[in-house]
Amino acid sequence: MNLVELHNITYSYPRTAQPALRDLSLAIPQGQFCTVVGVNGAGKSTLCYLLAGFVPHFYHGELTGTAQVAGHDVAQTPLAEMAADVGLVFANPFNQITGARFSVREEVAFGLENMGIPRAEMLARTEEMLALTGLSDLAERSPYALSGGQQQRLAIASVLVMRPRLLVLDEPTSQLDPAGTQEIFALLAKLVRRGETAVVLVSHELEWIGQHADRVVVLDDGRILADGPPRAILASEMLPIPGTRYTQAARRARAEGLAPAQGELPVTLREAVAFFRQA
């Protein structure tokens, strides 16, 4: 059974005329690293909220179709139960700090406290997660005294420590500076290599996606426009996304007659080097 099974999902926020998701079907197997791209307003955030249960349980509105995530029927499962199996991280690092705890370590443990995990296990899991996210040295600090990138790593640690079967990240670097963005993608690469958790990542960082993702889903106007391995999608000519800068450069070179008109366009840096060497 797939970890995520969405069938014919149509969803509208309350008092809106246009649905945010239209007849959307999507299946994600265990452990897959799936990325979602698309223009603003394409329904990416709504999809994230649906996977974590905030659509429909927090936003209400009208949901049709069936959504199974980590064995739960999303429409029937209270948020509190979804939280144990689906972790959600979003763009603003500051708003994800609960404010209920005074140190980084306690902030990470907060979710486990709510789940009633025994203290010894809680300590072990918290330390493990602090080490994984590189926050061990900052464990005694106030969460508010961290940089944006550190706060975002803290947000990831705080949901991962609950051992979700699916981690959903909605543009986790869009409000970070380049250094913070680097930190998050390095951490994500590490997570994906561990392969313990399925990840759904919404991001505009196409180069990175091209290198690391198993799969790219293109959303447009609430529908899935394309779905496949990064190479096929990111080098495609038909999509409302520009492709990576390597693809763009190769495309331009081809148009100017500087490269052979046949063959696959490069997506990653290494492919680009090979492509231009050929040319």
Partner: peptide
Amino acid sequence: ALEARGFGR
């Protein structure tokens, strides 16, 4: 963010 950490349990 608070709900995602199981606050409502």
